[in-house]
């Protein structure tokens, strides 16, 4: 797969995820969209690593795996906390910074 196509697909997935982050109101779906964006970057890294024949790109992907795992763990803890406060996770119910 030529790099142009790799980048085109990665960019499409990144924009899909960004649209989900900006347009969805369910906090869990927003977090899933962030995962989608991270995955599109992973895909670009693997594609470039394959083209250049350099495994260093795979190390970057491993780092993104770690970040994604931590992000989901912390994100879900925050979701649970927010649900305890308002009995809801629709993000337009959370429009003030103070608890």
């Amino acid at each position: 797969m030529p790099l142009d196509h790799v980048f085109a697909f990665a960019f499409f997935m990144l924009m899909t995820g960004a649209a989900g982050v900006m347009l969805r109101r369910n906090l869990i779906v927003v977090l899933m969209s962030v995962e989608l964006m991270l995955n599109s970057v992973n895909f670009a890294f693997v594609g470039v690593a394959r083209q250049l024949g350099d495994s260093a790109g795979h190390v970057m992907v491993l780092m993104i795996f770690v970040v994604a795992a931590v992000e989901v763990a912390i994100g879900m803890a925050i979701v649970v906390n927010m649900f305890r406060q308002r009995e809801s996770i629709a993000i337009d119910n959370f429009n003030v910074m103070r608890g």
């Binding site: 995820g17 649209a19 779906v29 899933m32």
Partner: peptide
């Protein structure tokens, strides 16, 4: 197969949103 799986992945991404 590579293109097929990539297109399926992109379609799945759209479905997530």
């Amino acid at each position: 197969l590579l293109y097929l799986f990539t297109i399926l992945a992109a379609g799945g991404g759209v479905a997530v949103v």
